[in-house]
């Protein structure tokens, strides 16, 4: 569904991603594991068109999406959940969802009601300003907001970062349910446990380069790679 081929991304003069390639097939969860600063978020932003790569190609559903703007990628079916949450703090929970709503043709479409069914905690705080929510609630809201765009593919950037273990567990379950509903996910994580539980295949990134790629079982067994690139 998503193919990233040899991309190089820069922030101004600093070269951040070096020849990053990855592939995510429809219906699976792929994880992108790496330490803080490894280049996970930059990879996500490159795919979303927020930091367009200077070299390489990205295609989605078989078509090149190079040079497309973030809003165009969202309309093609890519949902984006940024690592720093970025809820629209001044708007209520309900308004955050309402302004993100994009109806898709089919019947499995997400609406505010179905999103509140999915994240029950959000349904109770429809009128609260997003800026006043707890970290866990904000994280649910960013995922819910992305779902309202009715994506086929979800970029999830460190959804569990900084959350209490109980909340992490709930989120993990919910992300698993999204997969059951047919969503394809690229999950960036530092939290190996969550990523290994959820994913079908794994990529390991370090200093802007993909260092390992394999099935999740192989990655789980490969103590050496995990020690070398993921231990802090």
């Amino acid at each position: 569904m998503l193919e990233v081929e040899g991309i190089h991304t820069y922030y101004g003069l600093s070269h951040i991603l070096f020849d990053v390639s990855l592939k995510v097939s429809r219906g699976e969860i792929a994880c992108l594991l790496g330490r803080n600063g490894a280049g996970k978020s930059t990879t996500m932003k490159s795919i979303m068109g927020l930091t367009p790569p200077r070299q390489g190609t990205i295609s989605f559903k078989g078509k090149s999406v190079m040079g497309k703007k973030p809003y165009q990628l969202a309309r093609l079916g890519i949902g984006y959940v940024p690592d720093d949450r970025r809820v629209f703090a001044d708007l209520t929970v309900g308004d955050n969802l309402e302004i993100s709503e994009r109806r898709s043709g089919d019947s499995a479409t997400w609406t505010k009601e179905s999103v509140y069914d999915f994240f029950e905690a959000l349904g109770h705080i429809d009128h609260r300003k997003a800026g006043l929510l707890s970290g866990g609630e904000q994280q649910m809201l960013t995922i819910a907001r992305a779902l309202m765009t009715n994506p086929e593919f979800l970029l999830l950037d460190e959804p569990t970062e900084g959350l209490a273990p109980m909340v992490v567990k709930t989120l993990e379950e919910q992300i698993g349910k999204l997969k059951d509903r047919g969503l394809t996910v690229l999950l960036a994580e530092q939290n190996q446990k969550v990523a290994l539980n959820l994913s079908d295949q794994g990529y390991v990134i370090d200093r802007g380069m993909i260092r390992y790629h394999g099935s999740i079982d192989d990655l789980r067994d490969n103590e050496e790679v995990r020690k070398k690139y993921l231990l802090v």
Partner: peptide, 10 residues
Amino acid sequence: EMVGAMGINV
């Protein structure tokens, strides 16, 4: 930027 990422042409 986030508004754009929600599919809205800012």
